[in-house]
Design a protein around this nucleic acid. Structure first.
Length: 105
DNA sequence: CTCGTGACTTACG
DNA sequence: ACGTAAGCCACGA
């Protein structure tokens, strides 16, 4: 059972169009909170896996961060692959033209 | 309620 | 550039 906080995150994150990404910070800013870490935690427990594009959420510096609770391994590669298919260019786990791909609410 | 943890960020040396 | 520390806030125990 997601909390209100998480619900808000998912709702906001769902608005991110395909081919775009967002950051934990922007997300937090949109929610008017500074609990950046809590956002990450919310992703980890994210029960709306396909609906909520948690793979489109990256760190503030453009790093892809993590995915599916795995800190490294092919999960990251899968994430990158998905993003690449959506038009995002990634190099060394960093997004190219990050500022252009960044979606703002 | 308090405490520890965290898919974070920013600042400092 | 890199490591460490501090800060913030939500969540589970």
């Amino acid at each position: 059972m997601p909390t209100e906080f998480q619900n808000k995150i998912y709702e906001t994150l769902r608005k991110v169009p395909k081919g775009k990404v967002t950051t934990y910070k922007e997300l937090a800013n949109a929610l008017k909170t500074k609990a950046y870490q809590s956002i990450g935690t919310a992703m980890k427990v994210n029960p709306y896996a396909p609906i909520v594009p948690c793979h489109r959420v990256v760190k503030n510096n453009g790093s892809v961060g993590f995915f599916k609770g795995k800190k490294e391994g092919k999960a990251i590669t899968e994430k990158i692959n998905m993003l690449k298919k959506e038009g995002i260019v990634i190099k060394e786990k960093k997004i190219i033209n990050f500022k252009e791909k960044l979606h703002k609410f």
